[in-house]
Structure formats: C-alpha cells, structure tokens
Simulated scan of single mutants.
Amino acid sequence: MTDQQTPPPVLVHVEGRAGHLVLNRPRALNSLTHPMVRTLAATLDAWARDPDIDTVVLSGAGERGLCAGGDIRAMHDDARDGDGTATEEFWRDEYRLNARIARFPKPYVALMDGIVMGGGVGVGAHGSVRVVTERSRVAMPETGIGFVPDVGGTFLLSRAPGELGTHLALTGDAVGAADALLCGLADHFVPARRLDALRADLASVPAAEAVRRHASAPEEGVLARARAWIDHCYAADTVEEIVRRLADSGERAAKEAAGTILAKSPTSVKVTLEAVRRARALGSLEAVLEQEYRVSCVALRRPDMVEGVRAQIVDKDRAPRWSPAALEAVDAQTVTGFFAPRGPGRELTFG
C-alpha cells in the first residue's frame, strides 16, 4: 500500500452539528502518535471557533477499544537509542492537548468503549461527557512498564473517592463501567449496541439530551464493596506499609493486590504514590500536568522504562529485571528527585 493509499491515523468528519474525531490505528489499538496529537489539537482549535459545530465526538476505529495509550514502542526506542528529545516533545504537545480537552468550550463526548488506557484516558476522561459501555476497560497501567501515570491521570485518580485512585495507580488494574463511574473516570453508561444510535442523535440533538436517551445503569462493579480494605490499606504513608497492610488484611483481593504491586517497578510505584499524593494538593489539572511532565522526563532516562517496555511489548517475556529490584532499595532522595524543577526552557507551561 502506498502512502497515498494509507488512511489517515485520525479520521475527521462532520455529521450535522457534530464534529467527529476517530482514532484510526486499529491494528495498534489506536495508540497515539505525535502527528495524531497535532491533528486532534488543530481540529479542536478550529471547531472551538466554528459556529456550525455544537458537539465534538471522540471514538476509536475497530472493535477493540478507544485507545491503548501512547506509542510506547516509539518511546522505548527513543529512550534506548536516542536522546529522549522526540518523546519529550510528544509529551509536551500531548499534555497540552489533555488540558485543551478539559477546557473545551463545547460538549466533548468521549465514547470510551473497549480498552481505554494511558494516553486513551488522557484524550477521553478529561472530556465533559464521558461514556462507557459494558466492554470498557479503563486503566492507567504505567507502573507495569517502569513508568508513572501521566496525561493527567494522577489528577483524576487523586480525586477518586477515598483511596480508590491510589489502588488503581499502584496496581494498574483496569476497571469496568460501574467502577469507572464510581472513580470519576466516566459520567454515563450506554450499552455498546446503542452507540450507533447515540452517534446519530448527536448530529442534531444537544449532547446531554442525546446521552440521556440511551444511558442506563451498568451492572454492579467490584470497588464499592472493597472500599473498607482499600481505604485502610492505601492510607499508609509508604508503599512498604501499604503492601504489608494488604498482605495482612485477610481479604483475598487485597493479598492479590499486594502481589501485583510487588511485581511492578519498585521505583515506579514509589514515585507514583508520591505523585498521587502531591496531585491532591495541586489546584488545577494544568499544575498536575506540569508535575507529570517533570516526572515523565526523569522516568524516560531511568533504566526501568526501557526494561519494562522490553519485557511487556518488545520481547514479551513478561519478566522485567527492575533496577533496583526491591522497594527497600528505592530511597526518598531518589523519589523526590523525580519532582525537581528541570530549569528554564525545559518545563511544561501553559500560557
């Protein structure tokens, strides 16, 4: 297939009063590239000023999901073989896009059907009208690849009820529709079979009314019943104490969570806990994104990110060799170093 025949990675079209953005890399689970981010940003800028567009609708091509995240393989290659500049520039534009979506002046309807992870949460869960289905699996799984939740994920998770967000941040667990609603990652449940009808209504009906016509209640989730042990265990001050409480709780799910955390990058889980706690004290999404940019740029140059992507995505042996390999070997100075200002011209700012 020639370049002229290759379909664009973002399909842009208008139906009635609705502008549609369709992430169009289904074989890569619609993972985001830098050109895709630029296309989304430029189109949103144009549509914000267009009096003929009342609503923006984001969806993903294919049957598997909205978006599995950023192009992790490209980031891995840049960190391993390059100087990280390309990835930093990508994040700079991506995080600004996340803020733009959160502040978009018109209804921004994100159809968060299927897999919605990492960067997919960034382009979906900051929207004003966030729709999940029975097929939705929403997650910030970064600790499993030696990275830390970004794209405003620590902002969203820090504001989930109790310690639910801390649990999801450290374990990287995916949640279904009911739990996404409970955690503030989504607003409405619409059965997948009704999505086409919802899209049709959005062409001529205000977004709130269109969603109301098709929304219903999802099946019960699992997190509401686990609040007691989650809130107790994750309120601890350190990851070591969180893991100890989980292991000693007597709850099977809690013991499984302890094992999950211990399998992640020790550095990543410690930095993630600090990032979520700091995000609670920051007053805006933009401030959290600025913090995440600092953390991400440090993580890019640490060995665990390259190793984590190698183990999960490149070689797929699922046996990462973390450095250091134990929680106790990650000291406080290492953790706080992720949050240090990077200097003039190297910070993410919002004008």
Rank of each mutant, 00 (worst) to 15 (best):
T6S: 04
H13A: 06
H13L: 06
E15I: 07
E15D: 14
H20D: 03
V22F: 02
A28S: 14
A28H: 10
T33K: 01
P35E: 09
M36R: 03
T39S: 01
T39E: 04
A42H: 04
L44N: 00
D45Q: 11
A46T: 11
R49D: 11
D52S: 14
D52H: 13
V56I: 12
L58A: 06
G62T: 05
E63A: 13
G65P: 07
G65L: 11
L66N: 01
C67W: 02
C67E: 04
G70Y: 07
D78K: 14
A79Q: 08
R80F: 13
D81M: 14
D93K: 05
E94S: 03
Y95Q: 05
I101Q: 00
A102T: 00
F104A: 01
Y108L: 10
M112F: 06
M117F: 06
G118E: 12
G119A: 10
V123K: 01
G124N: 05
A125C: 15
H126G: 07
S128G: 13
S128M: 13
R130C: 05
V131C: 11
T133S: 06
R135M: 03
R137A: 08
P141Q: 03
T143E: 01
I145C: 12
G146A: 12
G146Q: 10
P149G: 00
G153E: 10
T154N: 06
T154W: 00
F155E: 06
L156Q: 11
L157Y: 02
T166N: 04
D173T: 08
A180G: 13
L182V: 07
D187L: 07
H188Q: 13
F189W: 09
L195H: 09
L198R: 03
R199K: 15
D201I: 08
D201L: 08
A208D: 15
E209A: 15
R213D: 12
H214M: 12
S216I: 13
E219A: 15
E219L: 11
E220F: 06
E220Y: 03
V222K: 12
R227H: 09
E240A: 12
R244N: 03
G250P: 03
E251L: 02
A254N: 04
T260F: 05
L262A: 06
K264P: 00
K264I: 00
S265I: 01
P266E: 07
T267F: 04
K270T: 10
K270V: 08
V271S: 02
R277C: 05
R280H: 07
L285H: 02
L289D: 12
Y293E: 02
C297S: 15
L300K: 14
R301I: 14
R302C: 10
P303V: 15
P303M: 14
V306N: 08
I313E: 15
D317A: 12
A319C: 10
P320M: 14
P320L: 13
R321P: 05
R321G: 10
W322K: 09
S323C: 13
S323M: 13
P324A: 09
E328H: 13
V330F: 09
T334F: 10
T334P: 02
V335S: 05
G337P: 09
F339I: 05
A340E: 14
A340G: 04
G345T: 08
